[in-house]
Amino acid sequence: MRKIYSFIIILILTLITSNLYSQCDTFEFLDDCTGQIKPFTFIKSFDVNFATKKGSSKKMEFSYPLNSGHTYIFATCGGNEAKMILNLFDRNHKLIATNYIASSKKYYETLVYECNSTSEYFFEVSFENDQKTCGVVVLGFKAR
């Protein structure tokens, strides 16, 4: 009978922990991350959750229309204190900005982009050392 008890307890614990991991609540990061964008106005957040992402890619891609005359800020907040790397691409998918400067190995939690050309922009997000954790990207703006 003890074996059955142990089996049930282990089963329940496994179900609970796996459920918690897959549901990694990215909204938990949102309030703190939004604090990083001041004095910009919060526009939108993008969930980055590799636990629920389909496929084997270690990058998540998003797009958003940015407007000329506005300055944007991207703030990255991740779980497990993992550094979240964000690369911004223009409408032709050409890399135009990043929060990780490879030459100096300098990492920033935010990235500011002064936009002068309205179009759809793309950005991809990954974690340092290809960690499969979760986080959030917060986008803010201000007019110039």
Partner: peptide
């Protein structure tokens, strides 16, 4: 129509500890 000036590399500067990239392409509506 939305037209774009010739695409140039954005310039980066650091302001208040943040990397700031300035878009050097202009769009006209």
């Amino acid at each position: 129509t939305i037209s774009y000036s010739q695409s140039k590399e954005p310039q980066m500067k650091e302001v208040d500890g943040r990397p700031v990239f300035v878009d050097n392409t202009k769009s006209t509506i």
